[in-house]
Design a protein around this nucleic acid. Structure first.
Length: 569
RNA sequence: UGCCCGGUCGUCUAAGGGUAGGACAGCGGUUUUUGGUACCGUACGUGGGGGUUCGAAUCCUCCCCGGGCAACCA
């Protein structure tokens, strides 16, 4: 659906659109195209990351907006790096993000057609087989400031080239011994037009075509033609492919194909992380993280495991916009989008991370009171849950201070606080061990201050989360910090691994949770039933993949905004 | 150094010759049984020099800065 703020309105007045929307508007208005067909073209050689999410929302989002569709096409022209495992994860991630593709294709579907295209170029005198080594080819290529020189094989006859090319396909030559090159212009200012290699010999097993082929087309000879075969109207890619556009158009023109056009936008860079698939792979292989889906990874699967919602990721991608200038998006925007969504949907629960015992001295021994607490104050239909209260409870260690400054709204001797959804308590006394560590706090509660029917008239500045000692459930909590210590690891000197944050994971092996959390876990029949939580005054949490009712494990999605921590600094 | 892109608050992104606006981050406040949320307020920007014009972020020009291009990767 078209947003009024983002497309020409009824009066024809110009409103804000990004440059791709302008192009599509123009193409539709001029009649160049009557509909929009985009494609998302991942190479199955790694897991998708948040940068791909941007590309996905650009491609699928634009098509949706203009009533078109999007194909999912795997760019699988390099058998040595590509695997079925990656294909599966990519399909899963795109679906999870909420998008449905029209057709699923593989560049390898077109290998036979591509071979035919190559033959046509050969017969038209526009391609030749080169016997030069890769070093020789590189040397003859020239440099950006110096033109290249013609290969001695450049003037072979079409017949000889065709025979040789067919022999290449037949497996008569070893890897690297020959290539097929487009015959363009060795002195072009665009290096890519200096007779680019379009086929290479690789006796390698392909994840889909098996051992059917021993020659494989390069990206340049596969991508544009695949677009054209599918009648892709707008082939949207990242900036580094800009100089490939001239070649892209050359093949389409010489081959007389559907006039797909390539447009480039700036890829996403996110502060305190990296987007390079190669480097992400390294983090996985060298065990800096737990796997592609480690919650610290900027991968879609990592974000999912961490508790990000598809909606929050889509919102993020929409907020960052699409343009052509290099960018480094502040990760706080991603976190904002997570909180924005999670605040509305998450179930509130109380979990004490670093417990200290509080004895309520005037609470009758052995009595339990079942209090009710709202599941979500942002959702009036969210219902309530039972929270049991008894004589001994736990509160957070840093919610008590022996000598508190005046701005401290929590518990200290003689002061009163509200226990969330329960009673107001007043601190009467406390005990310390020989190290000065608080071991026990003694309070009295005010029976007429019960939540919802408070007639006590006592004003408590602060409200604390708490759990009943005898009802507490042990859970493991994993808090995360940024994966890298520096804002832009890719730009730093030296090895990026030197900038990995050694404290990116903080495990709290035993935190004490209210019993409702266990109840929830028992009710979840599979992982899709898992709830997003807000642990009160802590942050947003989501059960880890490995979490079970026997062993509850929660990943921190993102912390709550903490203005107190800021003031405290 | 040749060719190709790009340069607007700290970070992103609008403004297509006519009031430089929005978001995140920051700062200050109000409300609050989460020091959360919500709401209000506030500060901050057109890389530089020339030119065209009544008027320039926008058009021209020179300069400066950043990025890309010399894989049989994509």
């Amino acid at each position: 659906m078209a947003e009024t703020t983002n497309s020409p309105n009824n009066s024809g007045e110009r409103t804000s659109r990004n440059f791709l929307e302008e192009i599509m508007d123009n193409d539709l208005q001029s009649g160049r195209h009557t509909s929009v067909l985009t494609r998302f073209p991942p190479e199955p050689n790694g897991y998708l990351h948040i940068g791909h999410a941007k590309s996905i929302t650009v491609n699928f989002g634009l098509a949706l907006k203009y009533g078109g569709a999007t194909n999912l096409r795997f760019d699988d022209t390099n058998p040595v790096t590509e695997e079925t495992e990656y294909v599966e994860s990519i399909r899963n991630d795109v679906r999870w993000l909420g998008y449905t593709w029209k057709d699923e294709f593989y560049a390898s579907d077109y290998f036979e057609q591509l071979f035919g295209f190559a033959l046509k170029l050969i017969r038209d005198g526009l391609a030749y087989v080169d016997d030069s080594t890769s070093e020789e080819i590189a040397a003859m290529k020239g440099t950006p400031t110096r033109p290249g020189t013609d290969s001695p094989y450049r003037s072979r006859s079409p017949q000889e080239n065709e025979d040789l090319f067919r022999s290449m396909r037949a497996g008569e030559f070893p890897d690297g011994s020959r290539t097929l090159r487009a015959r363009i212009d060795m002195s072009s200012p665009n290096m890519l037009m200096r007779d680019p290699i379009i086929y290479r010999i690789k006796h390698a097993h392909h994840h889909r075509t098996g051992d059917q082929w021993c020659i494989y087309p390069t990206y340049d000879f596969a991508h544009g033609q695949s677009d054209a075969i599918e009648n892709i109207t707008h082939s949207i890619c990242t900036l580094e492919f800009m100089s490939h556009r001239e070649l892209y158009n050359w093949f389409i023109e010489k081959l007389g194909l559907f006039p797909s056009r390539q447009y480039e936008f700036a890829r996403l860079n996110l502060s305190y992380t990296i987007m390079s698939k190669r480097k992400l792979l390294q983090l996985v292989n060298e065990k800096y993280v737990d796997g592609w889906d480690d919650p610290r990874m900027p991968t879609i699967s990592g974000l999912r495991r961490r508790g990000y919602t598809p909606k929050s990721i889509r919102e993020f991608c929409s907020r960052i916009g699409v343009a052509k200038r290099d960018n480094l998006i502040d990760v706080s925007l991603l976190e904002f989008c997570a909180r924005e969504d999670l605040n509305k949907i998450s179930q509130r629960r109380m979990v004490v991370f670093d417990p200290v015992k509080v004895v309520i001295t005037n609470w009758p021994e052995g009595t339990v009171e079942e209090l009710e607490s709202e599941n979500n104050p942002e959702d009036s239909n969210g219902g309530n849950r039972i929270v049991p209260m008894s004589r001994e409870i736990f509160i957070e260690r840093d919610d008590f201070m022996e000598d508190a400054p005046k701005k401290y709204f929590r518990l200290s001797p003689g002061k009163s606080v509200r226990l969330k959804s329960a009673y107001i308590i007043t601190c009467e006394d406390f005990q310390k061990d020989e190290h000065g560590t608080i071991t026990e706090i003694h309070c009295t509660y005010h029976p007429d201050s019960r939540s919802g029917s408070d007639t006590s008239g006592i004003k408590a500045k602060g409200t604390l989360h708490w759990v009943s000692a005898s009802h507490a459930v042990n859970v493991e909590v994993r808090d995360y910090d940024r994966l890298f210590r520096v804002e832009n690891p890719a730009e730093e000197e030296g090895d990026f691994l030197d900038y990995v944050n050694p404290d990116s994971l903080r495990v709290i092996p035993v935190a004490l949770a209210e019993p409702a959390l266990l109840e929830d876990a028992r009710n979840a029949t599979d992982s899709d039933d898992r709830l997003h939580y807000q642990f009160l005054r802590k942050g947003y949490y989501y059960a880890d993949l490995s979490s079970t009712a026997e062993k509850l494990i929660f990943n921190q999605t993102v912390g709550l905004r903490d203005t107190w921590a800021k003031i405290n600094k």
